[in-house]
Nucleic acid binder design. Structure first.
Lengths: 235, 235
DNA sequence: GGATTGGATATTGGATCCACAATGGACGTT
DNA sequence: AACGTCCATTGTGGATCCAATATCCAATCC
């Protein structure tokens, strides 16, 4: 049984990933490998490995001989990531639906309830992140695509970081999840896709200024249309 | 001008990436960091960094304390990667088209001609890989999405590795490219998407046994349908 | 007075060294 | 003779050491 191995580098990676995803270290902040190594009581080597992995996920940027900083977030990046998620998660929904079992649906309902009950808790933000991700991933795993899971995991971490940066509270997420569950239970693929798309799009919109409109010809525009979205002007 | 800096690790990464993408080291082969370091005349440190990055891209697998092997390829993985590419490249086409200029189109035509002329050359396979990727990427860059480029670059490397593993010659690629160019020139988004999808799907089909059919409910099935594909049985 | 260059300092990237885990073979036991 | 255990060997992961590069500041020149 390989995989049970916990190397120091794994530990460091998890802790740094957590720090970044939760916004404990903000975008633009500098990560000092020496300092981190000292504070964790390890050498710089595993810290370097962890940073390499964070870089591959796009969470940090390594400036040669000039240190490593947490990747900055701006609205353009948020829109970019949202577009990719819409394109891939709507695919995941479609591919997962045919393999949906009552058991998985129950598991999702559990997570849904758990989310509702925690909406006003002390660590609401923290709990939301984990439970929300697990709710969606439970479904997506049914698609049976390791690549898809890998991409979505990375993108989720990015998105979560942005959500926290822009201080977006997701009160409406419950309703979105209920809508998704209903569509899944009814076996309505089109509605499940639409609900997922609106869920992701809604999170993005809350980060944007009031005057926000989808830029025609953007990846976001394209992804929205692919998933059946109809622009305001055409309605 | 910093940023153009070439570190040793970058060099090692490029060489290893090349070796893997071109199949010089086959799937399942073991990579010995010590041996690589010696043959390149460097220490193990930059080799380790390079391997870390290859791992993040899914090109190699690191078995804790047991070495690193080139990720195996099978038909399921090929199908998986193809599905992701279809989903993302069709998005890229749609987002790029509105920003298409005559200049870019000319650049693509150049690459197209170059590809045709090299079809029977000595290093045909090698040339094809690079030129084909550049042909598509030239278009996709117009979408203005760093994330999309990053994901597609990784997926392309995977796909190329599989293509070479299954020893697929892409004679038809020329025709596909011509079709894409025509659609782009005409500003026909739907046709450009269809052409791109068929291009990618065609490459996958050539890896499959003759009896191959798209599994209903797979990510491939979903991606194909999203891009407007109609299954045989429904035609 | 401002800009440019040279050196001091700090920090990253690379090389080397060390410890521990994992395989393979030898030996002993049943 | 077969199986299990122990030890030696190999090699990965981590720690430490060294070199190369960027930044910062001061001195010098225009």
């Amino acid at each position: 049984m390989p995989g049970i191995h916990r190397r120091v580098a794994d530990e460091v990676f998890d802790r740094l990933h957590e720090q970044i995803a939760t916004g404990a270290v903000a975008p633009g902040d500098r990560l000092d490998p020496t300092e981190i190594a000292a504070s964790y009581g390890v050498s710089r080597t595993p810290v370097r490995e962890a940073i390499l992995r964070l870089d591959a996920q796009g969470l940090v940027e390594r400036l040669p001989y000039r240190g490593v900083v947490v990747t900055g977030v701006d609205l353009a990046a948020a829109e970019d990531v949202a577009a990719m998620r819409i394109q891939l998660e709507t695919l995941a929904v479609q591919a997962a639906l045919p393999h949906l079992t009552e058991e998985t649906l129950d598991r999702m309902r559990e997570l849904h309830e758990e989310l509702r009950s925690r909406v006003d808790g002390p660590d609401a933000q923290q709990a939301f992140s984990g439970l929300n991700r697990e709710f969606h991933m439970t479904l997506y795993r049914l698609a049976g695509s390791p690549t898809l899971i890998r991409l979505l995991t990375d993108l989720s971490a990015q998105a979560e970081r942005m959500r926290l940066h822009f201080d977006v509270r997701r009160g409406r997420a419950d309703d979105d999840h209920a809508r998704i569950l209903a569509a899944l239970a009814a076996g309505d693929a089109e509605e499940a896709v639409a609900a997922t798309r609106d869920h992701l799009f809604g999170a993005l919109v809350m980060m944007m200024p009031a005057s926000f409109g989808v830029t025609p010809g953007s990846t976001l525009d394209a992804a929205l249309r692919t998933s059946g979205w109809v622009p305001e002007t055409a309605r």
